[in-house]
């Protein structure tokens, strides 16, 4: 059985009549990296909140269908149990700081304090998590004195340390500068390599193409296409629904009209594929 499973999920926010998610069916396997792309208001954040349990337990509204993570049913679970299985990191790094802690080390330990973890084990787990995300040097800084990228890495580490089975990331880099975004992506990549299941909504197509095992594209609350990054990100459905494509795909498409890119070579989504495609080789590996 898949680690995360959504069957015929439709959800409507309490203040509207129009559903934000329509008949979503989705399975995510243990250790998989799933990316969600889509234009604004496509339902990406709503899907993230649903998998992480804040819908329906925090935002209420009307949820139809079934959501299961690790064999547990969302509607039968309490939010404070659900968050132990599914960790959530969202856009604004500043608002994810608990605000009650004076150093980064204490901030990361906050979740473990709430879980009643013993002090010695707590210190060990915080140190290990900080090492994995590469922020050990920030331990004694105030969380408020950090840059956006550093704060977002602290937010990721704070969830990582609680060892959830699934990591849900809702556009974790959208409010960061390019350097901060790159650093945060590296951390996410590292976590995925360590075997953690990641579900990430993201606008930056080049990054999605490079990291994701599988991609779903959403529009108007529905999944319009699902498959490998190459398959989904080069699909003509994306531009039709206002979803950006990779600059490598765009370059190859343009080149094709001028006869510079082979008609039989699949369109590239990453730099490596583009290089292979333009040098005449086949990039299928």
């Amino acid at each position: 059985m898949a680690l995360v499973e959504l069957s015929s999920v439709t959800y409507t926010y309490p203040t509207t009549d129009k559903p934000a998610l329509k008949d979503i069916n989705l399975k995510v396997e243990q250790g998989e990296f799933l990316a969600i792309v889509g234009s604004n208001e496509a339902g990406k954040s709503t899907l993230c909140y649903t998998i992480s349990g804040f819908i329906p337990h925090f935002f209420h509204g009307d949820l139809v269908g079934e959501v299961q993570v690790a064999g547990l049913n969302l509607e039968e679970s309490k939010l404070n149990e659900w968050v132990l299985n599914v960790g959530l990191v969202f856009q604004n790094p500043f608002n994810q700081i608990s605000g009650s802690k004076f150093t980064v080390f204490e901030e990361i330990a906050f979740g473990l304090e709430n879980l009643g973890v013993k002090r010695s084990e707590m210190i060990e787990r915080v140190e290990r998590a900080m090492e994995l995300t590469g922020i050990s040097d920030l331990a004694d800084r105030s969380p408020y004195s950090l840059s956006g990228g550093q704060q977002q890495k602290v937010a990721l580490t704070s969830i990582l340390v609680m060892e959830p089975q699934v990591f849900v990331l809702d556009e974790p880099t959208s409010q960061l500068d390019p350097i901060g975004a790159r650093e945060v992506f590296e951390v996410i990549k590292e976590m995925s390599r360590a075997g953690i299941t990641v579900i990430m909504a993201e606008h930056k197509i080049e990054w999605v193409a490079e990291f994701a095992d599988r991609v779903i594209a959403m529009h108007d609350g529905q999944i319009i296409i699902e498959g490998s990054p190459q398959e989904v990100l080069t699909s003509p459905l994306l531009p039709e629904h206002g979803i950006g494509t990779s600059r490598y795909t765009q370059a190859a498409k343009q080149a094709r009209t001028e006869g510079l890119f082979s008609e039989t070579t699949p369109l590239p989504v990453t730099l490596d594929q583009a290089v292979a495609g333009f040098s005449g080789g086949n990039h299928e590996d």
Partner: peptide
């Protein structure tokens, strides 16, 4: 607006877990 996001953030960190809290500080 921030209050809502912060509520989500601390909820995600098991703030309301029905367990006896421990402390990092000795």
């Amino acid at each position: 607006v921030e209050v809502e996001e912060r509520a989500i953030a601390i909820e995600a960190r098991a703030f309301t877990a029905p367990l006896k809290k421990t402390s990092l500080r000795e």
